[in-house]
Design a protein around this nucleic acid. Sequence first.
DNA 1: CGTACGATTGAAGTTAGTCAACGCAGGTGG
DNA 2: CCACCTGCGTTGACTAACTTCAATCGTACG
Lengths: 232, 232
Amino acid sequence: MSSCETCVVRNRAICAGLDNQEILALNALGRRRSVSAGEPLIWEDDDSLLVANVIEGVLKLTSSTEDGREQIVGVAYPSDFIGRPFGQTSKASVVALTDARVCVFSRNDFDRFARSHPELEHKLLERTLAELDRTRSWMMLLGRKTAPEKIATFLLEMSDRLAESGHTPITRGPATRFTLPFSRQQVADVLGLTIETVSRQFTKLKNEGVIDLPARRDVEILDRPALLALAG
Amino acid sequence: MSSCETCVVRNRAICAGLDNQEILALNALGRRRSVSAGEPLIWEDDDSLLVANVIEGVLKLTSSTEDGREQIVGVAYPSDFIGRPFGQTSKASVVALTDARVCVFSRNDFDRFARSHPELEHKLLERTLAELDRTRSWMMLLGRKTAPEKIATFLLEMSDRLAESGHTPITRGPATRFTLPFSRQQVADVLGLTIETVSRQFTKLKNEGVIDLPARRDVEILDRPALLALAG
DNA sequence: CGTACGATTGAAGTTAGTCAACGCAGGTGG
DNA sequence: CCACCTGCGTTGACTAACTTCAATCGTACG
C-alpha cells in the first residue's frame, strides 16, 4: 500500500508541515487513485464529494455553457489541491490531461480533518490565495489581450509551470523546451480562442523564428525576449 | 472612536466567530478609513502593506497592461475582505467606486493575528474559496460568452449582489431595480468590452423591453426570464 | 497500405472594436 | 435666469480581428 511517507509531493503539497502522527491520520482518510488521460475526476455541478491532491500528472478544471462551449478555468499540477471543501458544490469539472495519480479524500472527511488542523488550513489558504492571484491575471488575459498576446503569455506561463513541476530535465529557471500537456483545442479552451486561431498564431511565431515546433505538442522557445515583448 | 462592537458587518465579515476578547485585540490592530469614490486604496504591484474589510461601499480590483488597458478582476462589497495576506504582493489595484468605509490593518499585524486565530483563518479560507469560484465563472464569461450574453449575465449578477448587500429596499431575493456602482467604462472593464459595445447592448435590451434605464446608472429589470435566457 | 484524427491552411463571414460626431444633464458663471 | 461648458453616454459609419466553414495535410496506428 502507498503511503504519505514515500509521497513525492509530501513536502510541497498542503500536507507539508503536518507531523508524523497527523500524516498517519490523514493517510488513513485518503487513498491513491490513478486517472488516465481524458478521464474525469469530478463532474461540473455534481455534489463534488471529493477533494484531492495531485501527485503526478496534469489535470484541467473546466466550466461549460449549456450549448457546449468550454473554458478551461484552471490547471492542476503535482502538489496542487483539487476540489471544493466546506460545503459548496464545485462548479467546475476536473479531467486528467495526462495520465495522473491523485490522493483523494471524501470531502466530509477532509473538512473535518482540516477544521481540526489549523496548519493544514493555513497551507490550503496560502495555496488558494495564490491560485486566486493567478486566476485574476488570467482574467486580464481573457478580457483584454489580443490573440498574439494570449499565445505569447501562454507559452511563457507553460515554460514556467512545466519547469517547476519537473516535466523537463533538472534545470533552474523556466524551460526552453517542453511538451505541452494540451491539444490545440485545449490551448484554445484555456485562451478563449478557436483552434484555428491558435494554430495560425503558433505557425506565425514559428515562421518569425520566435519558437520552434519540433512535434505536435512540443515547443522550443528560441527567442524568449521576443515572446516577453509580445506578451503585453 | 469606532469599534467592532457596533460594526454593521460584524456578523458577516471574517471577524464573525471571534469572541469578545479576540475582537478587542483585533480592534486594537485595525483602524477605520474612509475612501471617496475614485480614490485608490492599494496600487498594483505596490508592496501591498495593507489588508482590509469593507464596511460600506463598493470597490474595484483592477489589473492593467503597460499600455493602459484595464480589466476589473474583482468587486468588493460590504463584508468582503481586500488585500493579499501572507507575504505576497498583490498584483491588483483597489479603487473605491462609491464612497466607502473600510477597516484596514497592516499586513504584518494581520498575518500574525490570523496565524494565531484559526477560526479567523477558516473564515478567510471560506471567503477566498467562494471568491475563486466566482472568479472562475467570470473566466467563462470573459473567454467564451458573446457581448449580449456578457451584458445579460452582468445585469443578473448585479441584481443578486446589490440585493445581498442591501443597496436596495429590504426585500428578499434579487433586486429588480438598482443603481449600478459602475460607469459605462467600468462595466466595459468588467466584461472585457468597449464602452460603445456596452452602450449599444444596453439600448438594445431597452428597446426589446427586457430592461428599463430610468437614469444613467439605474437599471430596472422588466423581463428576468428573458435575461436568464440571454445569459447563456 | 489505408484509415482516422488532430492540425494546418484558405476564403468568407460576423462580431466587436475604432474613430468620430452628437446628445444630454449637471454645474458654473455671466 | 439663462448660456455655456464639461463629462459621460449614445449613435453611426467603417475597420480589423477573430470565427466559421471547408478543404487539405500529416502522422500515428491498425
